[in-house]
């Protein structure tokens, strides 16, 4: 099983949307996918039209041999470990436990036979689950808005990654920095895109264009593949030379090159 963590300590950068969109597309393409929500907001379930549930709380109980994992089928080939407000006390319990940073890695090892890919949607914070997600991950995707503070958040998450690599045997690699809410009309977008390219080079992935349809989809409990599969957040934008650039279709193609 390949594990991909979607993380950025800055909020509102499109982590959950990216995690749900990637997981659902891979599931549609025949991969058996497990999507893990570690954010107390529990928006993975909401985005898929399901109720929030104490999946992370049950995960902590499982780690203490007090119960089973809670895995909910969401779509064909796609199951989720959901989250809700009980994730907060779960993190407090976890903080006092030994080997806490292994919790997700161990859970995914337990489920390795059943899935080809695990996608972990991280919370916008540096907490025990964030570290556990990076320890469990083979690949890391860092979605970022193209503004100064969000780009600074990329540096922070990569510093965490370097620290985890230094302190543990885990070897997650950076799959890419994914610019989201890409609006090519503004100068700041270009300035920050160039900043990213200068800092991260080939790790900068083709961006996801800003798209109202992407914001509307969760209101209908649908992913973008169901709600508006031909929208520009999926198919990208037409560049000056006529080539189509960016969008989740191109992002998924880049991810599949690593699977």
């Amino acid at each position: 099983m390949i594990t991909i963590a979607i993380a950025n300590q800055k909020g509102g950068t499109g982590k959950t949307t990216t995690a749900v969109t990637l997981a659902h597309r891979l599931a549609m393409d025949g991969y058996r996918v497990l999507l893990v929500d570690t954010d107390v907001q529990g928006h993975v379930a909401t985005a898929l039209g399901l109720d929030k549930a104490p999946g992370i709380y049950r995960l902590v109980q499982w780690y203490q041999n007090l119960g089973d994992l809670l895995v909910i089928p969401a779509r064909e080939n796609l199951d989720i470990i959901p989250s809700d407000k009980t994730t907060e006390p779960a993190k407090r319990i976890l903080a006092s436990m030994d080997f806490r940073e292994r919790i997700l890695a161990d859970a995914l090892e337990e489920l390795a036979e059943e899935y080809d890919v695990a996608v972990i949607d991280c919370a916008p914070s540096v907490d025990v689950l964030h570290v556990a997600a990076l320890v469990a991950a083979d690949w890391l995707v860092v979605p970022t808005k193209l503004d100064y503070l969000a780009v600074d958040g990329v540096n922070e998450v990569l510093a965490s990654l370097a620290e985890i690599k230094r302190r543990s045997s885990a070897t997650p690699d950076l799959l890419g920095v994914l610019p989201t809410f890409f609006d090519r009309q503004t100068n700041e977008t270009l300035v920050q895109l160039k900043t990213l390219v200068n800092a991260f080079g080939r790790h900068v992935l083709p961006p996801i264009p800003v798209d109202t349809r992407l914001r509307e989809a969760p209101a209908y409990g649908q992913t973008i593949w169901e709600y508006a599969p031909r929208s520009r957040s999926v198919v990208g934008v037409v560049n000056g030379n006529g080539t189509v650039v960016g969008g989740y279709a191109q992002f998924v193609a880049r991810v599949k090159e690593r699977l």
Partner: peptide
């Protein structure tokens, strides 16, 4: 090997042209 993703490179070039 390209130092950056070709799709990203074309976006940067196009953005600079617009600018």
């Amino acid at each position: 090997r390209s130092a950056i993703d070709p799709a990203v490179a074309s976006l940067v070039t196009e953005g600079e042209r617009r600018q």
